[in-house]
Deep mutational scan, measured.
Amino acid sequence: RHRTIFTDEQLEALENLFQETKYPDVGTREQLARKVHLREEKVEVWFKNRRAKWRR
């Protein structure tokens, strides 16, 4: 597996949602994934990693 490289637009959308909710539900993740052309799984893992970074 290779590392996903997120575009600035994707990161902006992910960060904006993170400010709203640290734990978006699957529907919200799917909606964002469609909007920025990512797989929902990638969005889910990004949030998991972003929460870990936020806790540190």
Rank of each mutant, 00 (worst) to 15 (best):
Q31V: 12
K22T: 04
R39K: 06
F18K: 02
P24H: 02
N49V: 11
R1S: 13
E44I: 06
R55Q: 14
F18T: 02
E20I: 11
D25R: 01
Q10R: 01
L38G: 00
E20D: 10
A33P: 01
F6G: 05
H2L: 11
V26A: 12
K48F: 03
F47G: 01
Q19G: 06
G27D: 10
W54R: 05
L14P: 14
W46R: 03
F18L: 02
L38K: 05
W46G: 00
F47P: 01
Y23A: 03
R34P: 00
E41L: 03
R3H: 14
R50I: 00
T28C: 08
E30M: 12
E12K: 12
L14H: 00
R1G: 14
E40N: 10
H2C: 05
T7K: 04
V45A: 10
V45S: 15
E40R: 08
D8M: 11
K42R: 15
R3S: 14
H37I: 01
A13D: 14
V26M: 10
N16F: 10
A52W: 05
E30R: 11
R55Y: 14
E40T: 10
I5N: 09
L11H: 10
F6K: 02
K35T: 06
R55E: 10
L32Q: 00
V36R: 00
L32E: 01
K22H: 03
E30D: 12
R1E: 06
D25Q: 06
Q19T: 09
L32P: 03
L17V: 10
R51E: 01
R34D: 12
H37W: 02
Q19V: 08
R55M: 14
W54V: 10
E20L: 12
R55G: 09
R3V: 06
E15P: 02
E41M: 00
V45C: 15
N49T: 12
N16A: 15
E15N: 05
K42F: 06
W46T: 00
R1K: 09
G27I: 06
K48P: 00
L14K: 01
V45D: 15
T21S: 11
E12N: 05
H2P: 10
T7P: 01
L32I: 11
F18P: 05
E44H: 09
F6N: 02
Y23L: 01
R51H: 02
K42N: 15
T21R: 04
R34C: 06
Q31Y: 09
L17P: 00
L17I: 15
L17R: 02
A33S: 07
H37S: 07
F47A: 05
E15D: 00
V43F: 03
L11E: 07
E15W: 03
R34N: 12
V26D: 09
V36M: 07
D25C: 02
H37N: 15
A13I: 05
E20C: 14
D8P: 12
D8A: 13
V36S: 04
R55I: 13
L38C: 09
D8Y: 10
D25E: 08
F6P: 06
E20V: 10
E15R: 00
E40K: 13
V26E: 10
T7G: 04
E40D: 12
I5A: 09
N16C: 11
R39L: 13
W46F: 01
R3A: 07
H2G: 13
K53I: 15
A33M: 00
E40Q: 09
A52V: 05
E41K: 09
W46V: 00
N16P: 10
Q10C: 02
E41Y: 06
G27P: 10
K42G: 13
V43R: 03
R1L: 15
D25M: 01
R39T: 15
E30H: 10
I5C: 07
E12T: 12
D8Q: 14
R51A: 04
Y23S: 02
W54N: 03
